[in-house]
Every structure is written in structure tokens, then in C-alpha cells.
Computed example of a mutant assay.
Amino acid sequence: MRTVAVVSNRGAQRLASGHPWIYRSDVAEPPTSPAGAVTVRDGRGRPLGTALWSPASEISLRLVDRRPDQPLDAAWWLERLARALDRRAGLREHASAHRLVHGEGDGLPSLVCDRYDRWLVVQLMSAGLEAFRGAIIDALLEHTGAEGILARNDAALRLKEELPRETVLLAGSVPEEIEVEEHGVRYLAAPWTGQKTGAFLDQRENRALVGAVARGRALDCFSYHGSFALHLARRAEHVTALDMSEAALRRARENAQRNGFTNIDTREANAFDFLRDEERAGARYDTIVLDPPAFAKTRAALPTALRGYKEINLRAMRLLAPGGLLFTASCSYHLTKPLFLEMLEDAAADSGRRVILRELRGQPIDHPEVLSIPETGYIKGALLEVAD
């Protein structure tokens, strides 16, 4: 018989509300077994389901199935992963890279899996999940026929689970670089060394949107490898890709050459300084993209982050020519949608411009945001037009 975890009333209510996490403080009677699957019960002995148990983590239990004593065997992983893959049907027609598993958003807490053409990159982010590494890899190989699977288990979050930070090959072989095609644009992903699992896949559809409306003189701030700039270049007359990293800009230039674009130039500069200097110089742009890194990595950093977000958006609004377009985004989880919109409203009011909200954007279908699990959603985006 499997080990049982008894949770407090607050923990039971959290599960009933649709959130899969139980924190250590709400585990009334912890399991006696090592990391793995346990049965969850409330204080009255009523079964609540099956969870992944992480003895060292603040998030001690992650519910994966409402059925108590459900074996997490090979058949279970095959079925659960099949559900996740089915909701991505059709994505490969538009992009050779996308997310196959988005953790809690797909009912697979702490598991991330991204496809890059014929290869997969996974992240196993909890001790409870690690206990099923073999079954997970076998199921992924059976479903996808991947030529190789790489684990990018180098995230700091694993330290909280008392797991090693490592990048390790789990099956087959995975190249150092993989060419990705998305909506007609090609770029190189770096699964072994790149950001996240090798590239930023969560802004894929937003890049396509911006590429469809871009015009005139365009500016891509925080450009990194030029992912937005490449899409801008398809319609804009000229694109400036701005980043503080010369190494990133070198890759951006390589990506531009890969697509045959000759209308992209790169600038190594701090975006805050560059926008301020361009405003003072009276520069004008027809299309601007602001896709900064997360300014608010903790709740305590939010006030400072809000000031930073407002400043870059205010300056971008002032730099736009009449009728110009701004796509602006935040990947800070702690900056909620209401706060994001409030920040944009404040920036618009201070800019002295008439700013029209054309479209609100979020995450693509392969990064599902579950309403009862706010941690599954972090991308906020808006397409704005300066009317005068």
C-alpha cells in the first residue's frame, strides 16, 4: 500500500479550488517514503488524489491525479503526455519548435518539454518528478520518435528540491545548434547553452503578429538573438536591433544573414539610455518592440520594476511617429495583468500622446494558462497605436 500524506483543511481547500500545490506548512502528516508518488488525504481520512512528493521542497506535494492510489506507471505517463501532445496538433505546420509540456498547465507539475525539430529538451523541476524520469523519457520517445532528449536541469529552482543542477543527455544525441523555422523566419536555437531550453518560444505568436503589422523605421529593444527583429524586417524598411550583449547581437546578425535580410543593423547599448538619448535627439520610429527580461523576479522587486516598465514604455510612446505602433510585453509573473495595464495607462497619460489599445496578448496555445493556477501564466503583451 502506498504512503499517505495528510493535509490541513487549508491544503484540502486549495486542492478543491483547482490548484495542485500543497506547501510544507499545510502537510499535517508527511509521508515516510522518499520522493515519488503518494496518496493525499484530508484530516478526516477522505482521499483527495495522487501527488508527487518532494521531501525537501517548500512545495511538498503536487497533485497529478484526482484518483487516490492511482499508479503512475508507464501507461499513465503515456496517456497524460498524449493529452498534452494532442492539444498541440497543427503547430508544426507553422513552427518547427514549440512547447510540448507546460508543467501545471498540462496537468504535469514541474515538467517542461520543448520540441526543437527532431529533438526534445526537458526540465525536471521537482524531486517527486525525478523519481519517474525513466518512464517520462520512454513515453516521450514513444510518442515523438525524437532523435535525442536533453535535460536542461540547470535551473536554480532544483536547488530547493536538493537536486543537482546539470545539463545531461538522456537519450540519443542532441546537436549544439538547431535551426528553427517559425512563420517563415529561420533562426538558430542553442539547446545546450541558450536561454531557457535553447530559445524563447513563448513569444512566437507575438513575433508573428508584430511581423504582420510592422512598417517604416523599426526598433527592437532587448533584442537578444533578434527574434522580433527578424519578423520586423519582413515588412519594415529598416530595423535596429538593440541589446547590451555583443555576443547576442553577433547571433542576431548571423540570423539576419540566414534569412537574407539586409535591412537589420545592431546596436550594443543599454535600452534605457538609448531610448532617453533618442528622445532628446528628436528621433522618430514607426514600429517599436519592447520585450525586456523580467524586471520583477520577486514580489519585493515589483515597485522598482514598475518604474522601469513605465519609463521604457513612456519613452517609446514619445518616440513613435503619428500612427506608429508599439508592441510591449512583460514576462514578470509578479506584474499582474491589471498592473500591466495600469502601468501602460500611466505611461500613456504622461506621454502627452493619444495611445490606442489595439490588442491584448498573452501566451500561445502551447503555453496554456490555467485560470485556477496563476503561476502558469506570466506573459502579458499589448499592441498599441499612437494616433497623433
Rank of each mutant, 00 (worst) to 15 (best):
A218S: 12
H231Q: 10
G172Q: 10
L326P: 15
S8Q: 10
R234T: 11
R258C: 03
K337Q: 12
L188A: 12
L319Y: 09
V210T: 11
E104W: 05
L81S: 01
G103Y: 07
W53G: 00
D273A: 14
S245I: 10
L275W: 06
L371S: 12
L357S: 09
N313P: 13
D273P: 04
L140A: 04
D65A: 03
T39R: 14
I136G: 04
L169N: 08
V4P: 05
R165K: 12
E345I: 07
L85Q: 11
G282N: 13
L91E: 06
G184D: 09
V112C: 02
R10D: 14
P20C: 07
R235P: 01
G148D: 02
D138S: 15
S173C: 04
G128W: 03
D346L: 07
D273E: 15
V6S: 04
Q257P: 00
A229C: 05
A296L: 07
G128R: 06
G381L: 03
K297D: 10
L326S: 10
P55D: 00
A256V: 02
T262G: 15
D106C: 09
L124C: 08
A12Q: 08
R80E: 00
P68F: 01
E162W: 02
P109H: 03
F274P: 05
A5D: 15
P55A: 01
R204G: 12
I356P: 00
A283C: 13
L140W: 08
E205Y: 02
W119Y: 15
L275F: 11
F132A: 02
R215I: 03
T193Y: 09
K310V: 03
L111C: 05
L384M: 00
A97Y: 12
A156F: 02
R44A: 02
G145D: 09
S57E: 00
P71K: 00
G11T: 13
R299T: 03
E268Q: 14
A51Y: 01
R152N: 13
I59T: 01
P55Q: 00
D202N: 14
S330M: 08
A321Q: 06
L290K: 08
I312W: 03
H19K: 06
E375H: 04
L157N: 03
G145Y: 07
L209S: 12
S33T: 13
L314A: 12
V355D: 12
H225D: 04
E205G: 06
A241C: 10
Y333E: 10
T39F: 01
L290C: 10
K310H: 11
D138W: 02
A294V: 11
E268S: 13
A316H: 07
A199Q: 12
Y224L: 04
I373Y: 04
K337I: 00
P47D: 03
A56Y: 00
R165W: 02
A248M: 12
R204A: 13
A387F: 01
E246R: 15
E385W: 01
G184A: 10
I373R: 10
T50D: 01
M244K: 14
R92K: 05
E142K: 13
M343V: 07
L157E: 14
A127P: 14
G184T: 08
G128F: 05
T376I: 06
P164F: 08
I365A: 15
E375S: 07
R66N: 06
A35G: 02
V27T: 14
F340W: 13
